[in-house]
Amino acid sequence: MKSFLKGNEAVVMGSLLAGCQSYYGYPITPASEITHAAANYFPQLSRTFLQAESEVAAINMVYGAAAAGERTMTASSGPGISLMCEGLSYIAACELPCLIVDIMRAGPGLGNIGPEQSDYYQLTKGGGHGNYNTLVLAPNSVQEMLDFAIIGFELADNYRIPVIIAADGVIGQMMEPVTLPDPVKNIPEKEWALTGDKRAEYNLHTSIFLDHDQLEEVNLRLDRKHRQIMANEQLFESYRADDAEIILVGYGIVSRQLKALVNQVRKQGIKAGLIRPITLWPFPSKAFEEIRNYKALRKVIVAEMSNGQLFWDVKAALDNSSLEISLINRMGGNLIEDQDLLKEITNS
């Protein structure tokens, strides 16, 4: 049974099927359909939908609901995510699970509502204050918007960490056929939750530790968790890369363009392949360790709708390699022209 949904609607359906009990949000283009769908479906299922007074309030409501033990979520776009970074730091510090969807638009400042991938740094390097990371998933289809919501809640619960779905405006806005899976069963009990009964009597969520050693211990604990995630949760897609002379790197909508181009130029006899990061944090450095061993590989082309934010992570992952690495990018809400990519591939 297929449904034809927008990415923004699919992520809500995925969350509902994952047992998400509450949605706290504030409207912003191009993420508003998420709030609309949540407003439609959550109350019908007797789950909580609340339009907050700001993104600042929304993320703090998510903090409260997560502390209370619910699967909970919010969604926004760049300007709103900036406001949420304060709350995100607290949520990460208290090691609370939640899902945050960022439908990235063009910035900086108010920018415009066209698609970009320029929240990459903000999302993958923490975003708020202090030493923390969040797990960042980058879907490239409507089906993945749905599936990653389900996977996202699982990862969030397993590691007690906020999970962010980072999609560019196109992935949020586009429609594709999707299959809706069965609702998730057996969501684990959270013994640390503020359940408002006897179980919660000693439960506490706080991020203030005046004792320096105690706070350092908190940081070290987070560090250990981050390292565990980096070791175990890297996800990437490798497409026709094994024998490639040129490997294209991109995520989100860009990776779809790249995949089509790989198919196209392969027909012309150019051996191209694709590495698509699926987790943006942890960065899939394993993919780049692997491609170092590819005999035929000469060049890596990073394509992104931002100012080289992904490029520098790829560059770092390929440190000390003799491979040529180039960047093809567009900003301001523009998609990358297939022609520009084609030129870069054929000239390589």
């Binding site: 009990q21 509450s22 706290y24 909580t48 609340l50 907050a52 600042v56 309030a57 929304a58 703090n60 409501m61 998510v62 903090y63 409260g64 609901a65 502390a67 209370a68 033990g69 619910e70 909970t72 304060e86 709350g87 607290y90 503020l194 359940t195 408002g196 009964d197 919660a200 009597e201 439960n203 506490l204 969520h205 706080t206 991020s207 203030i208």
Partner: peptide, 22 residues
């Protein structure tokens, strides 16, 4: 009791969700 520490000024938002959860 159960306790949660809110960011500066945000306690009513946190309280809202804790209450709506339970």
């Amino acid at each position: 009791t159960g306790n949660v520490e809110a960011a500066h000024g945000r306690a009513p938002a946190v309280a809202t969700a804790v209450k709506r959860s339970h």
